[in-house]
């Protein structure tokens, strides 16, 4: 059944996880749809057009990654990946395939709802806001100006481009690969040190404690994420 509230489709073969997610998400005011396998999940996505999908990577009939790829062929519905201790490479692959975020089992319910909200908020934004603020930082995407505590911060072109990517996908993980491909071209994918060097500079310019960044977070082995609060 397709409810009118925010619809969350949970695709997971573990009945206990589904039950727990139902309790958690319904308590958070969402309605929950369930599918226990990849194919059933795909049908549900097509039939009910959920607002967000929570997808487990390990499914009995097909891999979660394939489910994700098939969804992405015809739908832009936000997808949150659930994994069990999967290697970083799996997460990167999922993110590169169009997942919006990931969570590793076991996870906290607060964390899950927060992530889902962030995803939903992003997708519900009709158009990209011209100015994004986090902490004392203000990024004016239209004017390509970054201000910290009201005064302009000078960023190099690459620094700005990196920050812009993170700002546009704020709350979401941007993988190293995505960044390198977009900013340096497909051949630069191995040169993660470009990112590290630039990120160090960006943090030094924007973060209060550059070595303990509050907003420009590192996701070990995966990429970066801009955390707004």
């Amino acid at each position: 059944m397709c409810a009118a509230k925010t619809n969350v489709l949970v695709i997971d073969d573990e009945v206990q996880i589904r039950r727990l997610l139902r309790i958690t998400l319904e308590a958070a005011g969402m309605s929950v749809l369930e599918a226990n396998a990849g194919r059933a999940g795909l049908e549900e996505v097509a039939r009910c057009q959920p607002d967000v999908v929570v997808l487990d990577l390990g499914l009995p009939d097909m891999s979660g990654l394939d489910v994700l790829k098939q969804i992405r062929e015809w739908s832009r519905v936000p997808v949150l990946i659930l994994t069990v201790l999967a290697a970083e490479s799996d997460k990167v692959a999922a993110l590169d395939a169009g997942a919006d975020d990931y969570l590793t089992k076991p996870f906290g319910s607060a964390e899950l709802t927060a992530r889902l909200r962030a995803i939903l908020r992003r997708s519900s934004e009709e158009s990209e806001p011209a100015v994004v603020r986090f902490g004392d930082i203000e990024v004016d995407l239209a004017a390509r100006v970054v201000r910290r505590a009201g005064s302009e911060v000078r960023l190099t072109a690459k620094e700005y481009a990196m920050l812009r990517m993170l700002v546009v996908h704020r709350g979401k993980v941007v993988t190293h690969g995505q960044m390198l491909r977009e900013l340096w071209g497909p051949k630069a994918e191995e040169n993660t040190h470009y990112l590290r060097v630039h990120m160090t500079h960006i943090r030094q310019k924007l973060e209060a404690e550059p070595h303990k960044p509050r907003h420009l977070r590192t996701e070990s082995g995966i990429g970066y994420r801009l955390v707004e609060d």
Binding site: H176, N191, R196, K212, T218, S220, G221
Partner: peptide, 9 residues
């Protein structure tokens, strides 16, 4: 998977 790492991170 060896990759460039930032010690602080």
């Amino acid at each position: 998977r060896l990759d460039w790492c930032d010690g602080h991170d």
